[in-house]
């Protein structure tokens, strides 16, 4: 049995009186890619944002229950610690427009006021950009602004920025929905590489993508975790009728 890195226990999330994530219990094994899918408004993104406490940044948003990271409850920790350990990549590439590519990669250190010797920063930048297969493309333009890159490159830069902090878990919120097909496949290939070192949780509305990249898939519907299983198992032989309907395209 693989070791569990993230576990949620009776996790509930609310926007005001709106109960958007209901009693989710899930165990996520280390060094796996987990796809989270479901129709829009099913609470999958909210759940994802709950894992690194981004959910509560929205005014009126609250949460109950436990999210265990290595047997420590992130709900009890200060969000800053949580987010240093659990990185996140967003739907739209959001490099910092005022920083160069180089500074964007080490933004987590630079902007947190963690001072590192130049050599170490160089190492982190090269290492992180290599991990996201961007090093070759940008190594000669590290001083240019991040917003100068193409959409797909920007998104990989954002992944590098998260990777640079050496988190244990990486969260992806529909990371390819704003990208063209070629950039999408580059990012998808990355997932295979990244899972050697990190645990990846990916929210996607694209079923093919879930099938292609993930080891396990969670299906959310109306705020509930309906089914969570091996991806192959889920797509070939779903147990719940709602999963079956979703996969076969009866509703979207």
């Amino acid at each position: 049995m693989e070791s569990t890195i993230v576990k949620s226990v009776d996790y509930n999330a609310y926007f005001g009186d709106n109960h958007v994530v209901k009693n989710v219990n899930i165990e996520i094994p280390r060094n796996n890619v987990i796809a989270v899918m479901g129709p829009s408004g099913c609470g999958k993104t909210t759940f994802l944002r709950g894992i690194n406490r981004m959910h509560e940044l929205i005014p009126g948003a609250t949460a109950k229950g436990k999210i265990m990271l290595n047997n420590e409850d992130v709900m009890e920790m200060h969000p800053i610690f949580v987010r240093l350990k659990i990185g996140m990549v967003f739907q739209r590439p959001n490099p910092f427009p005022n920083l160069s590519i180089y500074d964007n990669v080490i933004a987590g250190y630079k902007l947190n006021g963690i001072k590192l010797p130049k050599a170490e920063k160089d190492k982190i930048v090269e290492h992180s950009l290599t991990r996201v297969a961007l090093w070759k493309e940008v190594k000669d333009s590290l001083t240019k602004k991040g917003s100068f890159l193409s959409g797909g490159q920007q998104q990989r830069l954002c992944i590098a920025r998260a990777v640079a902090m050496e988190p244990e878990v990486l969260l992806f919120d529909e990371p390819t929905s704003a990208l063209d097909p070629i950039s999408t496949s580059t990012v998808e290939e990355l997932f295979h590489e990244l899972k050697k070192n990190y645990t990846l949780i990916i929210v996607t509305h694209n079923m093919q993508q879930a099938a292609r990249v993930s080891d396990r898939t969670a299906f959310f519907y109306m705020g509930e975790l309906v089914e969570y299983d091996n991806t192959k198992q889920m797509f070939t032989n779903p147990t719940d009728i709602r999963t079956q309907n979703y996969i076969t395209g009866r509703f979207s």
């Binding site: 690194n52 981004m54 940044l57 969000p79 800053i80 610690f81 949580v82 987010r83 240093l84 990185g87 996140m88 967003f90 739209r92 959001n94 490099p95 910092f96 427009p97 005022n98 933004a107 987590g108 630079k110 902007l111 947190n112 006021g113 954002c158 920025r161 998260a162 902090m165």
Partner: peptide, 28 residues
């Protein structure tokens, strides 16, 4: 855009750094 703020928070930045190091420089 809110995405800027979220990107900064997701890197584990405390509120004052998000504002002073990211938001204010972008709106300078």
């Amino acid at each position: 855009p809110d995405t800027l703020r979220e990107a900064a928070f997701a890197l584990g930045m405390p509120f004052h750094r998000v504002i002073l190091k990211v938001i204010v420089p972008c709106g300078i």
